[in-house]
Structures are given as C-alpha cells and as structure tokens.
Design a protein around this nucleic acid. Sequence first.
DNA 1: TGTATCGGATACACGAGTGTATCGTAGGAC
DNA 2: GTCCTACGATACACTCGTGTATCCGATACA
Lengths: 215, 215
Amino acid sequence: MTDTRVAGGATTTRRRETTRRRLLDAAAQVFAEVGLDAASVEAICDRAGFTRGAFYSNFETKDQLFLELAGEVALDRVEAVRRRIAELDREGAFADLPANAFAIVQDVLDVSADDRLSILLMSEIRIHALRNRELAAAYLAQDEEMRRAIARIIDDIGRTKTVRFRLPSDQVARLMLTVWEGASVRAAMAGLDYAEMCRRTNEELARVAQLLIEV
Amino acid sequence: MTDTRVAGGATTTRRRETTRRRLLDAAAQVFAEVGLDAASVEAICDRAGFTRGAFYSNFETKDQLFLELAGEVALDRVEAVRRRIAELDREGAFADLPANAFAIVQDVLDVSADDRLSILLMSEIRIHALRNRELAAAYLAQDEEMRRAIARIIDDIGRTKTVRFRLPSDQVARLMLTVWEGASVRAAMAGLDYAEMCRRTNEELARVAQLLIEV
DNA sequence: TGTATCGGATACACGAGTGTATCGTAGGAC
DNA sequence: GTCCTACGATACACTCGTGTATCCGATACA
C-alpha cells in the first residue's frame, strides 16, 4: 500500500486523500448554496459521488469538516493574495506606480474571491463565526492577515513618494477590504453576473481610492 | 368578540395579535441565536410560551414567518432612523453644525441596530437574502432607504456651507453605512460588550468622516 | 496471482422535527 | 350568566437525517 506517512505518525493512503479532497470541495459548494445547517451530510456525499460511509470514515461530524474547510479557505485566500502580489512584482507592475496604484489593489482583492460561490461561502463562514468563538478567532486572524498583505502593497505604493495617503496604510487597507466586501455582497445579492459584479465593485473601490490619495 | 376588522376584510382578535407578536419576537431571538435553519418551530414556540398549535394557527411555515419578520425589521430600522432624525431636529441638533456633524450620523446609525442580537439578526437576514430573490429585493430596498435617510442628513450638514464633502452625499452615505456595518460585525465577532462595540465602531466611522470632509 | 487490509457501501435503529386532525376552553357578544 | 366560536393545546402519523455496525471489494505488495 502506498502509504504516505505524515509527520505526526498518522498513515494515510493516496486514495483516502483524494476522497477527503472531493468531500471538502463538494461541501464547499453545498455550504455556499444552502448554508451549513441546511446542508445534509447526504447532500454533500451525493455531490462528491460517495455515500455517507465515506464521509464518516473521513470526518467526525459535519461541523468538524466545516471548521477544517473554513481554515482552508482562510489560508487559500491569504495565499492567493500573496502569490498574486509576488506575480505582479515579477511582472514589474509595481514599477509603473503610481499610475496603476489602486488597480493593483483591486486586482489583488479580486483574486481573493473569484466568483459568486466564494462570496456565499465566505458569508456563510462569517455568520457562523459570529456564533462560534473558535471560528471567530480564525476569521478575525485571516482578516488581519489579509489586511497586512494589502497594507504591504499600500506601503510599496506609498514608498514611491509620488503619491501620499491621507490615512496610515493599515487603515487604508481596512477601508479597502471593507468596501470591497460590502460591494461584492451587494452585487451578488442583486444577482449580477460575475463580470458586472467586478465592474461595480471596482468602481466603488476606485472612488474610495480617489478619496484616499492626497492631492 | 372584539374583532378588529382589517381593511382587507380579514378578521383578527386582539388576543391573536399579541400571540403573533410574541411569536415574532421569540423567533427574532432564536433566529439571531442559532440561525433560521437551526431554529426549530418548537424552539420558537417554547421561547414565546406557546405550543406548535399556536404557531401553525398563525403562520403557514417558518419561512413565511421569517419573511414577515425580515420585512418588519427593515421597516423598523428605517423608521427608527427617521424618528431619531426628527427628534434631533426638534432638539436643534442640526443648528450646532458642523461641530457635531458626524456625531449626528453616528448617533443615527447607532439607533438602527441597538445590540448584539440585532446585528446577528441582520446578518442572518443578509445571508438568506443572498440565496433568495424575494428577500434580496427587500434587503436591497431597505439598504437603499437607509442610504437615502443618511444622505438627507449629509445634505443638511452640507447645506450649512461651513463644511464641504469630497463625494456626493449618496456616496458618503453608502460609505458610512458600509464602514458602520463592517465595524459592527467585527466588534460583535470579537465578543466585545455593547459599550466597547459602539466605541470602536464610532472610532472607525470618525476616521472615515475626517477623510470625507473637504479641508 | 494470491491475499491481507484499508476504505467505502449498505443496512438498520433511532431521534428530532414537521404538519395536521381533533379537542377543550378562554373570552367576547348578547 | 350563557352561549359560541376562535384560538391554542394535544396527540399522532410521518419524513428526514444521523451515526454505527457490518459487509464487500479494490488495491498494493509478495
């Protein structure tokens, strides 16, 4: 058996890992669509192409899976932002500052939730974080991490000296994140398609950006 | 029988009305605490001091009650803001402008959700609006109404001519609302008590306000 | 190719919640 | 005070989801 011995000493087969993966992905979809409570274990398994046997062989409970998923989403989001920043840096995007200053922030934020389902999933996690201490801590930590990542870009932008901000970088980051989230949710709620959703969100972000730049 | 004949022709007793009221209030609490899906009809009835017989005698389904409640919350919120504005006007608060300019907006926003439970309930409504067209329309309409109410205050403030804004009033209102909501939710998530919650939220609002005022 | 074992399917027992049909009574009309 | 009826309580039948105990087969290795 092709066991992949994990550091902890736990032993897992490759087959098992893909099963977990498929269950997690399916759960993400179902949670986004109907919410944690309305999502039955069975529905998740159906979506993943398994029966409940597979589920309970891989996860303790639906809640445990949700926690794991939430942690993953948080990491992924931060990671996606980090990667995009590195990529933009390699492409020399930061050299063209400040012409494309906030375009960069928009670009980076857009990577962090790339469709309607992501926004629904994030919202689902958010509301459960409001009722669960453990989840709340994770959510706030991720939020903080995102803020730091964005603040770093803001700092980079500011360092060119050709543009100055009317607030410290961390507050600029917070504001951009808040506005981005509000606009995304409103757009998703209005039932706009993804393209239009991005357009509106970016428009709103741009306005705030204008506001933030010292004249 | 003290029937209160309603315009439509429907006939309801006073007793019935208070039952409905108690069920709606209980439901608001339970929904805020555990969410729509996790809230059983029985739990709502327990809280209200009835059995399910009363529930099904007054409402078709839990969803119908939720819709009704959501509509009520939206109306109440807008109404509370309106009343507070009128009150402030009577008190002559608008005469002291612009010294207390954004203090007024803060004051007004604070009235619109007066505790942790309200924030939870609003969030619960929000996430269901993301998945339900009818609810989404109602939610967005309420949001729009709130925005208009706030914008009117902004206009009043602007009309004094001693203070100018760097964005049109409706966009100022949108921004204040967005920041207010973001800050409230983050504070509630962090488990802060109501006083501290208000303090932080207002602090964040004040910073944005500074930004919005033309120097 | 045989075989041991891991991983997923199946079957079942159970609880929780729902909605309805029926009943008893509180409270208003007279 | 008496009667009536609307209103809420109660009882029941039913569905749906859960979690576990057991079984079967795929898979990795000899």
